[in-house]
């Protein structure tokens, strides 16, 4: 009897795990072996008695097309620019977490979309190539036009859109004038962040639109301390990535368990050095030294979902006119 049980148990365990699959729709970089995905999968599978399966790609367009029939249980990696549309779809269920004591520079009261990381937009430069980096947004606007920056297109990239909102929040109705000053310095506008950043590291541009946390990669992975984010007293625009559970999930317990796990120290500790961003809920003394040492902006700017949605098209029009 005992002997007969052992193979049965061996067989039963994988079957059980297979029955319990948590399907997570994630942005492509998340699940690659250089992103936080593998550690998240390993950490969750260690206690969930299930399999976590990442499905990568254009997550929101796909989810909107699939509707309630989607296989997704959780989505991971949404940006704040799409939350209004995602919320309106009614496809998501509340995350059920207490967000009152997050380590975010802004108050977070959203009961659907849960931040797991954050950072701010910033212009990154190389100290060895730029002698007089602008010390404020105003200085950047007034810098000579041979200071060349690369930015991302707000129509195809979230960081590009964040720059638009950043300028809008700093300059308000004067944003068109700010863009008119900035436009001659824009070497080019790329489709995504990676093309811009590649142009910067290859020495093509003096500054690149990136994140306040970008220098951490160069310090931690390459021992290169020459890359610096210029910190502007006018403030920096807040960026966060979000997770949410799908209301129609056939694994509600697992989905909830995953949401419960996101804000735990174990999960949050993965973020800084795998995602090169700041953890959403982790005391600063628990951050890796490289993140603690980074210069921090004093002011963080952020538009609410509805404000951002209302500003998007007018700001896009202003931006396109500046380059005409």
């Amino acid at each position: 009897m005992k002997i007969a049980l052992i193979p049965a148990l061996l067989l039963a365990t994988p079957v059980l795990a297979q029955d319990r699959v948590l399907t997570v729709y994630a942005e492509d970089y998340v699940a690659s072996e250089w992103g936080p995905g593998p550690k998240i999968k390993e950490g969750f599978e260690a206690f969930c008695n299930c399999e976590l399966r990442f499905v990568t790609g254009d997550i929101l367009p796909r989810l909107l097309m699939e509707g309630a029939g989607t296989q997704a249980d959780v989505v991971f990696g949404l940006n704040t620019d799409v939350t209004a549309r995602a919320r309106a779809s009614g496809l998501f269920a509340p995350h059920g977490q207490d967000t009152s004591d997050m380590s975010l520079p802004v108050e977070w009261t959203d009961d659907i979309f849960l931040p797991y990381n954050w950072g701010e937009t910033a212009f990154v430069y190389d100290e060895t190539r730029l002698d007089n980096p602008p010390a404020s947004f105003a200085e950047l606007l007034d810098a000579p036009d041979d200071l060349k920056i690369v930015i991302q297109d707000p129509r195809s990239s979230i960081s590009g859109l964040a720059l638009l909102l950043w300028v809008k929040q700093v300059y308000g109705d004067d944003a068109p004038d700010a863009w008119a000053k900035l436009a001659p310095k824009v070497l080019t506008v790329t489709r995504g962040w990676s093309e811009s950043y590649g142009m910067f590291t290859s020495g093509e541009a003096d500054m690149v639109l990136s994140y306040t946390t970008s220098p951490a990669y160069h310090i931690a992975a390459e021992d290169d301390r020459t890359k610096t984010a210029a910190i502007f007293p006018e403030g920096h625009y807040f960026m966060t990535e979000l997770a949410a559970q799908v209301a129609s999930t056939d694994q509600p317990e697992l989905a909830q368990a995953f949401m419960d796990w996101i804000l735990t120290p174990e999960f949050q500790a993965v973020i800084p050095l795998a995602n090169w961003s700041l953890p959403a809920k982790l005391p600063q003394e628990d951050w890796p030294q490289v993140m603690r040492d980074l210069p921090r902006p004093e002011t963080t700017l952020f538009y609410s979902e509805n404000e951002a949605e209302a500003l998007r098209q007018p700001a896009l029009d202003e931006w396109q006119r500046a380059f005409r």
């Binding site: 492509d28 250089w34 992103g35």
Partner: peptide, 15 residues
């Protein structure tokens, strides 16, 4: 796709 993943993880030289 791997090339883009490398670029998106700051690994420009590997890319």
């Amino acid at each position: 796709l791997k090339l883009y993943q490398l670029m998106n993880s700051y690994r420009m030289e590997d890319a």
